[in-house]
Design a protein around this nucleic acid. Structure first.
Length: 468
RNA sequence: GCCCCCAUCGUCUAGUGGACUAGGAUACUGGCCUCUCACGCCAGAGACACGGGUUCGAAUCCCGUUGGGGGCGCCA
């Protein structure tokens, strides 16, 4: 079997968003699964709207997601000559013709047809004028006037369009640049694309492209039209929700593999399995298992998947991804990697994003903690003072192990007639400033003797200042 | 308006004619665990859009209706 080649052709007129990323993912997975090639191509034939900054951000987003490409990135804007050659050929073979209809006239006619309840289509005014190339003339393809245009979609089976649905559409604009329909086909042919996996908003473009393949006498690739991603409200993705740039999810503290996992499960399933590593996805993904109905983007579920991967990832992996969120606020060089890894271990079940983890780690990385006022008022009581003093003393020699610490604090509570909770909360605030934190014993263990005693003494000083 | 696609809990999905009292995940509710918050565990509520067929039998096949989505550019 010949090598499978897929492609992802974003248009640099905006950032890479969830929908695009999922299309890229499915193409990438399909290629990887079949040990084929994945080609990246930037469709920038619209020179007005295409922006360099979007090229940069799209590439960055793909890299961050780990969707590496085997070929490219190609830029359509650098391939104009190629398109012109093919167009020239079609013209010479009589399969395309030049059209001199002014835009205004075309629009007027279109409006009329729409008013009459007809589908707007070009009325072939110039089809038989035998015009040559010239100023202001666009090149149109001769589309079949009767019959059906049929193709076999990998997911949906046979899809049939009446030939009347396709008019003599423009393949070369009057300025000589190719239109999308034309450039896509020429690129897919010359890049050896075997499988086109794209959003189902392209279904109605397919018959047009098939007309070009036919005119060129080239066997078209296989098509698989995947359902689109909708917003949580069932409407088209908009800036409000999922149309945000993928890089914004990076900023928001999502793990790339979590986003991949979530995106893969949007429209695709493998029995009851919910969580997949990228490696597993490559093994198990088959385009044929993709659903046909559009899927809504659910931020809650994304969060849950992210939480799962945070919880189940190696601490070193987490540290790597956490660093950008920490280094802007703390000087990480002063801590050993060992210390950071242990700190991460204590917070990883407690946050859904890396941003949350970074916030939770604050007390590990900062010199002084600031007390939550309500918590301090409630738990920093004069009665607790002797307990804290005793703890400072005993901590000098206690073995810092969870079991030892737990036994110690339970005994302590009993001796002083406190509930463990009251002691724990007071020390928790002393060490973290907050009433909510990882388990007390693990905090003490990670923080170490010196810092723990220092912070409890600070707390004692605070109590004296505020209560006597 | 015309053409095309789609239809299982709120959401993502399993399900391909009998194993369905329709399974899992998420979100929600209650409980357990417990030094706080999480995690984890247990339980609860929650869906085959509707109407016709086909069949001994339909979530599964066919038709229609309704609903949703997409397209109809010298945008991609």
């Amino acid at each position: 079997m010949a090598e499978i080649v897929t492609r992802f052709p974003p248009s640099p007129t905006g950032h890479l968003h969830l929908g695009g990323a999922r299309t890229a993912l499915f193409n990438w997975l399909y290629a990887k699964h079949h040990k084929g090639k994945f080609v990246l191509r930037l469709e920038d034939t619209d020179r007005e709207r295409s922006k360099e900054e979007y090229v940069v951000s799209i590439l960055e987003a793909l890299k961050w997601l780990g969707l590496d490409w085997d070929e490219g990135p190609y830029f359509q804007s650098q391939r104009f000559e190629l398109y012109q050659q093919y167009a020239q050929r079609l013209f010479e073979e009589g399969k395309a013709y030049y059209c001199e209809c002014p835009k205004e006239v075309l629009e007027e006619k279109k409006k009329k047809m729409l008013e009459n309840g007809q589908k707007p289509r070009y009325d072939q005014t110039c089809r038989n004028k035998n015009l040559g190339p010239g100023e202001g003339r666009a090149l149109r393809i001769k589309a079949p006037e009767f019959g059906e245009i049929v193709f076999e979609d990998l997911l949906r089976g046979k899809i049939v369009f009446p030939a009347e649905e396709v008019d003599d559409f423009v393949i070369l604009r009057s300025d000589g640049t190719p239109t999308y329909q034309f450039a896509v086909v020429i690129d897919d042919i010359t890049m050896g694309i075997t499988h086109v996996i794209r959003g189902d908003d392209h279904i109605s473009n397919t018959p047009k492209q098939l007309v070009i393949y036919k005119a060129l006498g080239v066997e078209p690739p296989k098509f698989a039209h995947i359902p689109m991603v909708l917003g949580p409200d069932g409407a088209k993705l908009s800036k409000r929700h999922g149309a945000k740039s993928i890089l914004e999810y990076k900023e928001a503290g999502f793990l790339p593999n979590a986003l991949i996992n979530y995106l893969a499960r949007l429209g695709w399933g493998f029995g009851d399995q919910e969580y997949f590593s990228v490696k597993e996805l490559i093994e198990k993904f088959d385009i044929k298992d993709v659903n046909l109905s559009p899927a809504r983007f659910d931020p809650d579920k994304l969060l849950a998947v992210n939480a799962y991967w945070i919880k189940n990832s190696d601490n070193r992996f987490l540290l790597d991804h956490l660093k950008p969120f920490l280094s802007n606020k703390y000087n990480l060089d002063q801590f050993s990697e060992e210390y950071l890894l242990e700190a991460i271990e204590t917070v990883k079940t407690r946050g859904k994003t890396l941003v949350e983890l970074a916030e939770m780690m604050d007390f590990y990385l900062t010199e002084e903690v600031f007390y939550d006022v309500n918590g301090a008022n409630k738990f920093f009581t004069p009665q607790i003072v002797p307990v804290l003093e005793k703890v400072c003393e005993d901590l000098k020699t206690l073995t810092l192990e969870n079991k030892v610490l737990e036994d110690y604090f339970r005994n302590l509570a009993e001796t002083y007639g406190f509930k463990l909770k009251d002691i724990a909360q007071a020390i928790r605030i002393a060490l973290t400033g907050k009433t909510v934190s990882p388990g007390l014993f693990e905090i003490i263990r990670v923080l170490g003797r010196e810092k723990t005693i220092y912070r409890i003494k600070k707390a004692l000083a605070y109590i004296f200042e505020n209560s006597f």
